[in-house]
Design a protein around this nucleic acid. Structure first.
Lengths: 228, 228
DNA sequence: TTTAAAAGATAGTATTACTATTATAATAGA
DNA sequence: TCTATTATAATAGTAATACTATCTTTTAAA
């Protein structure tokens, strides 16, 4: 039996649905590889077309521009991660265990999901760490937000916020804490690799990692017995 | 008596020191205005030259490219903010008071500093919120780091980490917490304005702001009486 | 078998991100 | 004061980017 995980994407993200053709899937696959290799700034539709073995014009039939393609990829990632979170916390009662699981999913380099053949989740995770925030740190953010392009990100954030409230219903900032955890998981990973002096992680001491930092932070913040 | 605040910048940031000529100062001033208005992606040296009333070639004599200019502006900002932190926490003994002051400085829109005539700190603060992370979220980060371009940012982070340790010498992640506080101050401000559903702040309830969220988070994390 | 849609091939444009050259204005030193 | 140096202006040009347009061929569904 083959299980195919189909992720339904917002129609506004593309001109033609890349999941519904071989060329479309190739475009996504090669985009992920190219952006991972050279970074988003150096990524162009011309290089992409060459890599895929098609023409620039054909790529433009799928995506308006490279920024939309990045949002597509990010939206796909957040949807997929949300699915992972639901799947891996399914049947778990204890919100502490659930939150720890989520921190691991956010921080740890994932292994490729066999259910989505043409997408390499491990590369995708790396891409989102470096390029993810560029999807919304633009002048167009409000327009794009109206088109619901960031819905998968918000849904995940909301999901995490609810688990936070499950653990501590009195906490005042569940959503801010959730978005903080998400972003910091990525930033601390990036810093560890490229600007290590901004962190306290080192090769020798495996007790200090982004995961332990985030767990420590999250559960100290949410401690119920805390009294002003 | 006139006080001029001169900030000594890393020589690698520019080809010709913009602080040492009228044209140079105008280039910085107009860069800040243009990036604030249209965003970094839409910002070009041609538009900048037009705005300044000079030629593209002249701008290129000061900065290698627009990315270096952004790093210059960011480095200036972090140096200036570090100075503000030192100045405003000077003579304060209590690390709690110092940390609260720092959170306010990171989160609150600043008023223009009269000591630096040609730079509008209020615009600069807004720019760093939206564009700041783009200075290092690139493929060139390691090279740029070798050139010490991020030193002002790291210095500030280190300074904050030391105050954190002053308050709680047993805390394991002072630097990670410091870089977290810095980035989250910006992100939560950005989210509040553009993607409010990622936060718990609203117009009506002034008791929930990025400042209260960060203070609450920081001091819960650093609580000394916390026992495993 | 027809026909509509997708993809390929090709061309073209405006803008961007530069580099190069020469002329002119400012200024600092002899 | 003259001269040498340096900064800036003016102009030109190039390769690459970010598209748009059009026309033909292939494919695959009715």
């Amino acid at each position: 039996m083959e299980i195919g995980l189909q992720i339904k994407m917002n129609e506004k993200l593309f001109l033609r649905n890349p999941e519904q053709s071989e060329l479309g899937k190739k475009i996504i696959m090669h985009s992920i590889q190219l952006i991972h290799k050279d970074g988003f700034e150096a990524f162009t539709f011309k290089k992409l077309a060459e890599s895929v073995g098609t023409t620039e014009a054909s790529v433009y039939r799928y995506f308006e521009n490279k920024h939309r393609l990045l949002i597509y990829i990010a939206a796909w990632y957040w949807t997929w991660l949300h699915y992972q979170v639901i799947y891996q916390t399914h049947n778990i009662e204890d919100p502490v265990v659930k939150l720890k699981k989520i921190i691991k999913l956010l921080s740890t380099t994932v292994t490729d999901d066999l259910k989505t053949s043409y997408i390499e989740e491990s590369l995708l995770h790396q891409i989102i760490i470096t390029e993810g925030t560029k999807t919304y740190l633009t002048k167009r953010v409000s327009e794009d937000n109206k088109d619901k392009l960031f819905k998968p990100y918000k849904d995940l954030c909301n999901h995490i916020a609810n688990i936070i409230l499950e653990y501590n219903p009195d906490y005042h900032y569940p959503k801010s804490l959730a978005s903080t955890i998400i972003e910091i998981a990525h930033f601390q990973n990036f810093f560890r690799e490229h600007l290590p002096s901004l962190t306290d992680f080192n090769e020798l001491n495996c007790d200090c990692t982004p995961v332990t930092f985030l767990e420590d932070m999250l559960f100290r913040v949410l401690r119920k017995e805390y009294v002003e």
